[in-house]
């Protein structure tokens, strides 16, 4: 088998089909990411505010939002008046391509 450098994924794909749950998981992440970024485009929001808007559990929003922070889509804003919850916002020089 002749292998072309930089294009090797297709060789493994022939031998090892991608499980359905892996593609489903990706779809879910992509959808949630879009929902979170769309919600933040309207203004800075806290985790409980985003959870209410997206009708998702707060812990799930926290996990996904912190992942987006790590991946460079989102940044931390001010903390609320009670010093409890941070606001999060779209990263100003961010990679938000959605």
């Amino acid at each position: 088998m002749e292998v072309e450098k930089g294009k090797t994924a297709k060789y493994l794909k022939e031998k090892r089909p991608v499980p359905k749950e892996v593609t489903e998981h990706l779809k879910y992440f992509t959808k949630t990411k879009k929902q979170l970024l769309d919600a933040l485009k309207e203004g800075d929001k806290t985790v409980p505010q985003l959870a209410e808007e997206l009708k998702k559990p707060k812990e799930e929003v926290m996990f996904q939002l912190m992942s987006l922070l790590k991946y460079g889509y989102v940044e931390t804003g001010e903390i609320d008046d009670n010093d409890e919850y941070f606001y999060y916002k779209i990263k100003s020089n961010g990679k938000n391509k959605s």
Binding site: T46, K58, E59, V61, M62, M66, K70, E84, Y85, F86
Partner: peptide, 14 residues
């Protein structure tokens, strides 16, 4: 660290 500071994983409260 995973978060911007010490936060609750349940809802992001400090």
């Amino acid at each position: 660290r995973p978060f911007n500071t010490i936060l609750r994983p349940g809802d992001g409260k400090m």
